[in-house]
């Protein structure tokens, strides 16, 4: 990675869907959040709208498309973050602690959603501090303590 040019890194970044820790949506509607990302990545309006609907449908947020993102519940916010990560069909999905701040039922709901995205074509990397029940569907699990891998 260190030897890659800035342009190459940006190209790679565009092919990685990233869910940041403590994700906070833009202060606009759910649909506009997804549209914003797609438009700045160069999609024309119609294409962007089509992809945004597909992404929102995939996370089960199509009904909330006109809702202000700031009015969403924690699990809905997490789903929106997931929609933002997958809207441009990335090859790799990096999810940084998506279960934080969710109750067990909501964690299960989100876990099911993540598992559904893992269709065999794209790689999903999930970092979580919670119990490893989320790792049931994972093909590989690494356990880190103080930044050191303690079990493969």
């Amino acid at each position: 990675m260190a030897r890659l040019s800035r342009q190459k890194i940006l190209e790679l970044q565009r092919r990685i869907g990233f869910y940041p820790q403590g994700f906070s949506p833009l202060p606009r509607t759910v649909l506009d959040n997804v549209l914003f990302k797609l438009r700045v990545l160069g999609e024309v309006r119609d294409q962007a709208q089509e992809k945004a609907y597909v992404a929102l449908e995939a996370v089960g947020m199509i009904r909330e498309q006109a809702t202000d993102a700031e009015d969403l519940s924690p699990v809905e916010r997490a789903k929106l973050g997931l929609a933002l990560a997958v809207c441009n069909a990335p090859l790799v999905l990096l999810l940084d602690d998506p279960f934080a701040g969710l109750d067990p039922a909501e964690q299960e709901e989100l876990d099911a959603l993540v598992t559904r995205f893992h269709d065999g074509r794209s790689t999903i990397v999930v970092a979580t501090r919670g119990p490893l029940s989320h790792a049931a569907a994972a093909s590989r699990t690494l356990r880190l303590v103080d930044g050191t891998v303690v079990s493969p």
Binding site: R14, P20, P27, K37
Partner: peptide, 16 residues
């Protein structure tokens, strides 16, 4: 700022 952060995360270059 939130939009700028999202653009950076999405791989939007400074040239844009």
């Amino acid at each position: 700022r939130n939009e700028i952060r999202l653009m950076r995360l999405s791989g939007v270059s400074e040239r844009t």
